[in-house]
Simulated assay, not measured.
Amino acid sequence: MTLEPVTLSGQYVDLVPLTQQHHDQLAHAVADGELWSLWYTPIPEPGEMAAEIDRRLSLQKAGTMLPFAVIDKATQQAVGMTTYMNIDLHGPRVEIGSTWYAQRVQRTPLNTEAKLLLLSHAFDRLDCLAVEFRTHFLNHQSRRAIERLGAKLDGILRQHMRMRDGTLRDTCVYSIIASEWPAIRSGLNWQLAKRR
């Protein structure tokens, strides 16, 4: 398996390979809700966006991340970022993470469809054994969103990492395995259909 940059398209969202050309729109998007002020997740400030894009692209070059800009099809504007990360080509398995969205598109069909596109590509095209999600133990909004997808909690990594403010993060690890994917795909398609 190789992970090449790819565009994933749906009705509400396009996930396109991240480039520095997305910088201005992403700097504007992250200001919607001052997302960098969320203490439990690392999100760049507008002035840090160029460095964050460079960081993600360097991880892509190293083969450990495949970053996307999240494009709202209604406005054709970048409204966030997401990635395949911690890529294990031998499994194969990937983690979907380092995701953030402008406040105005949170809890909309855009996020549900973005996850559907990423999971579909991982299981149906890349033949992954499992897809993982990780989040801070105290990030209840993210945990609820991951659980709504149908992912199961594998466990909690205690004192897993140090946050920017020096606090220690307990990390919840969730996964979806290949045998669960057909039912989860049906559930996500149902969620999208009822919003139309």
Rank of each mutant, 00 (worst) to 15 (best):
S142W: 04
L119K: 02
I156F: 10
P5C: 14
W190V: 11
C172T: 00
I156K: 09
A27E: 00
L116F: 11
I146Q: 13
R55W: 06
R195K: 15
M163N: 05
E180C: 05
L126G: 03
G187W: 03
R162Q: 14
R164C: 10
V13I: 03
G63I: 07
R55Y: 13
T135S: 11
L57S: 12
H90V: 09
L18F: 00
E45K: 14
R158A: 11
A27T: 13
L168Y: 09
T171S: 13
D88C: 09
R93A: 11
I184V: 12
T75C: 06
E147G: 08
Q21P: 03
K61P: 07
G91M: 13
Q106P: 00
Y174P: 01
Q60G: 06
Q60M: 14
H23A: 11
Q141L: 07
R158G: 12
Q159E: 14
G150Y: 07
D32K: 06
P109I: 06
M65H: 09
G155R: 03
K152T: 15
A78N: 06
M161L: 15
I177Q: 01
G33P: 03
L57A: 10
P109F: 03
R104I: 05
S9K: 08
M163A: 13
L26C: 00
L188N: 05
I146N: 11
A69K: 02
M85W: 09
A193V: 06
H28G: 05
H90T: 12
R196I: 10
E95Y: 00
I87L: 05
T83L: 06
K73A: 01
L192Q: 14
S120W: 00
L26P: 01
R185C: 01
A102K: 01
R56C: 11
A193I: 01
T82S: 10
A27Q: 10
P5K: 13
S142Y: 04
C172K: 04
S37T: 14
R134W: 08
G155H: 00
R162G: 02
L3H: 08
L126S: 03
A50V: 12
H136G: 00
R107Y: 13
E52H: 15
V6N: 01
Q25P: 06
A78W: 09
